[in-house]
């Protein structure tokens, strides 16, 4: 079952990359989310999988009474999800404002910072 999940991670990454390479801002945004999910799953899988036993010590005990899921990747991923969401919101708003200002969704047409006909460097002292 690890391998199945590994293959699924591959699918997430592939789609994320594919969407990021498209030139439409909104598609790229979806790509960021999917790539983020893929990476979260990657860390989760790399920490080994355990079926249905949460890393919670039963009440009254000092130690869990059997094998439990690896808590470390979970802690990493939990913050990653929230930070990823903040990043997604930021990019979304940025794209939204860009669209409002530049009237464009295609990154090819956004040349404000790097104009096609940028002036040559001055040839003098």
């Amino acid at each position: 079952m690890d391998y199945v999940l590994a293959a699924l991670v591959g699918c997430f990454v592939a789609l994320g990359v594919y969407l990021l390479l498209s030139r439409s801002l909104i598609r790229m945004l979806l790509g960021v989310v999917i790539l983020g999910n893929g990476v979260n799953l990657l860390i989760f899988t790399a920490g080994r999988l355990t079926l249905q036993i949460a890393p919670i010590v039963p009440p009254g005990l000092d130690q869990p009474d059997g094998a439990i899921a690896n808590p470390l990747p979970q802690a990493l991923i939990l913050t990653a999800i929230v930070i990823g969401f903040a990043m997604f919101s930021f990019l979304l708003v940025l794209a939204f404002r860009t669209y409002q200002t530049l009237d464009a969704d295609n990154t090819d047409t956004m040349r404000l910072a790097e104009p096609v006909d940028a002036p040559q460097p001055p040839l003098s002292y």
């Binding site: 949460a54 919670i56 009440p59 939990l78 913050t79 929230v82």
Partner: peptide
């Protein structure tokens, strides 16, 4: 601290 949950989930 003892059950599933916490500040992140609660805040969301």
């Amino acid at each position: 601290h003892n059950e599933p949950g916490g500040g992140f989930i609660g805040g969301l």
